[in-house]
């Protein structure tokens, strides 16, 4: 019998290069670590320790949007949603963070897809952004529907526009930018009207469920990145459970990216 493979995640003391405001609640955190930048793949995540905040002893799991393995830089985008992320936002350039990574299984990008649809909502945009850059650089035609509650929570649109060859559609729940409503509406229309080889989505579960179910109906491959509260990030604590057609799995080790048909949506 084989011995199971532990996570490839390792502890890195990384230097913070930037931790800047990109929206009222949104921050862009750039960290420098050559080894981690070489190892991490789109859709994987890191688990970051913040010190000095007794309300956040567990690490904070974050996805990355961009990675430059030549410069050793990783760009993470996060929302301030509680005391832990508020403490993280206080960390300045030059300070050191303990980062565990790379964690989880990322997007499967080598599917010979010609045309892909990417759909994201909220901070779910972060890992999908990383997928968009990777797909675009390997010549895949990408249409991207990105949704947020309000204009202030949208970011990176200019950069996306510069990289992807297809359509970029932004939606806001309150109509303050782009189309009013949820990302699911234009995304489901595109999915019905155009022919895609692959769909990638991350965001609120109702969004992912709608996209995944429609893709399955059309026979199009759909990868979903599941978000869960979690403690360890490497398979030790069983807190990040995702119900699948083959039983409970862990978002940290079996995911966060799953085949949409595998997920049993609540």
């Amino acid at each position: 019998m084989a011995i199971p493979t532990p996570s490839a995640g390792r502890l890195h003391d990384v230097r913070v290069v930037e931790n800047s405001v990109i929206g009222e609640e949104l921050r862009k955190l750039v960290i420098e670590d050559a080894e981690l930048a070489r190892a991490i793949k789109p859709g994987q995540f890191v688990n970051i320790a913040v010190s000095g905040e007794p309300r956040q002893l567990t690490r904070i799991p974050l996805s990355f949007a961009e990675c430059d393995d030549e410069l050793g830089l990783i760009v993470l985008v996060y929302a301030i949603i509680g005391p832990g992320t508020a403490r993280l936002a206080e960390i300045g350039p030059g300070e050191t963070l303990s980062v565990l990574g790379p964690l989880g299984n990322g997007w499967r990008l080598a599917d010979d897809a010609k045309r892909a649809l990417l759909v994201s909502g909220g901070t779910g945009t972060v890992p999908v952004f990383a997928a968009a850059l990777a797909l675009a650089s390997s010549g895949v035609a990408v249409d991207f529907v990105v949704g947020a509650r309000t204009r202030d929570l949208l970011w990176g649109l200019d950069e996306l526009r510069a990289h992807i060859s297809g359509d970029l559609i932004a939606t806001t729940d309150d109509g303050s930018f782009g189309e009013a409503g949820f990302a699911s509406e234009p995304a489901l229309e595109l999915l019905s009207e155009r022919s895609y080889d692959a769909v990638f989505t991350c965001g609120p579960e109702p969004l992912m469920k709608a996209i995944s179910n429609k893709a399955a109906e059309l026979g199009v491959s759909c990868q979903v990145s599941m978000e869960r509260t979690m403690a360890c990030g490497f398979g030790a604590c069983s807190t990040c459970a995702v119900r699948t057609t083959s039983g409970m799995k862990g978002a940290c080790m079996d995911g966060p990216v799953f085949d949409g048909r595998e997920v049993v949506w609540s």
């Binding site: 007794p54 309300r55 956040q56 002893l57 567990t58 509680g82 005391p83 832990g84 869960r228 509260t229 979690m230 403690a231 604590c237 069983s238 807190t239 990040c240 459970a241 995702v242 119900r243 039983g247 409970m248 609540s266």
Partner: peptide, 17 residues
């Protein structure tokens, strides 16, 4: 199978699971 998610949350000085 265990319980449904969410299965953990941070609390002051620790966590609940």
């Amino acid at each position: 199978d265990g319980n449904e998610p969410d299965r953990m949350a941070d609390v002051y000085g620790g966590m609940i699971n």
